[in-house]
């Protein structure tokens, strides 16, 4: 098996159905990528422009970051696909465990210095 690995194939062994799926996946990836660049630009603009007040900017870019995270995990890292139950549950439990820690450490060390 191993000695045939670098031989190239005459034509793809994928069925038309599979090819369609791959193409669709590619399109989704590109759209998601473009969208993510878009919201990144938006975040830069929000911070860079002098007109917007900080009360608006901070929650706004945090929201954009959250959207970015979801896109990244579910579209780029394929968590939306079938048979990704275990990676999903691990990712979510990691977030659920880390979030309260980060929040409480910000509250305690950032404010009361303990």
């Amino acid at each position: 098996m191993a000695e045939n690995l670098d031989q190239s194939f005459e034509e793809s062994s994928m069925s038309n159905e599979e090819k369609r799926k791959i193409n669709r996946e590619q399109r989704i990836q590109i759209i998601a990528f473009a969208f993510m660049i878009g919201i990144t630009i938006l975040a830069f603009l929000a911070v860079g422009s002098e007109q917007l007040p900080g009360v608006f900017t901070i929650p706004f870019i945090l929201f954009l970051a959250f959207v970015q995270l979801i896109l990244q995990l579910y579209y780029f890292m394929h968590l939306k696909d079938k048979d990704h139950g275990w990676p999903n549950s691990f990712m979510i439990s990691g977030l659920v465990l880390a979030a309260p820690m980060v929040v409480s450490l910000i509250l305690l060390i950032g404010i009361v210095k303990y």
Partner: peptide, 21 residues
């Protein structure tokens, strides 16, 4: 297993993190 991550500060009660925490 889940709760074990939500209790770490009970080792630090006397540090002075305050009554609410």
């Amino acid at each position: 297993a889940f709760l074990s991550f939500m209790v770490w500060m009970h080792h630090m009660f006397t540090v002075g993190i305050g009554p609410i925490a």
